[in-house]
Amino acid sequence: MSITSDLIRGHTDTIVLSQLMSGDSYGYEINKVVAERTGGVFELKEATLYTAFRRLESAHLIESYWGDEQTGARRRYYRITPNGREAYKRLLNEWQIAKSILETLIHVKESRT
């Protein structure tokens, strides 16, 4: 599991951007969707998620604004910027190339065994 986590954690930025492509969201909601989609197998650590938010925001790929909750602490929402959309497409493309390379490299061919 730890190796899988490390592998996925390297793509936190892509995961966050892909979530924001379909609409504004906030930390817990993003993590909830990640957990739901993976059937509870994978969950981003909050520290990792917030670090990604800060990194993406300082690169102007996402921007944040505060919700107008009347009671208690406010939610901090994130919105993807046009730059962020482009970065997402690029990252997705990179991932697809990496995936096909990895697949050809790590599969053992039946005929040679």
């Binding site: 817990y28 993590n31 909050e46 917030y50 909750e69 208690g72 602490a73």
Partner: peptide, 17 residues
Amino acid sequence: VELKEEMYRNMLEKYDD
């Protein structure tokens, strides 16, 4: 301070869930 507020809110929601 903002990060703290953000974390507090998200953790509280998770706790309630």
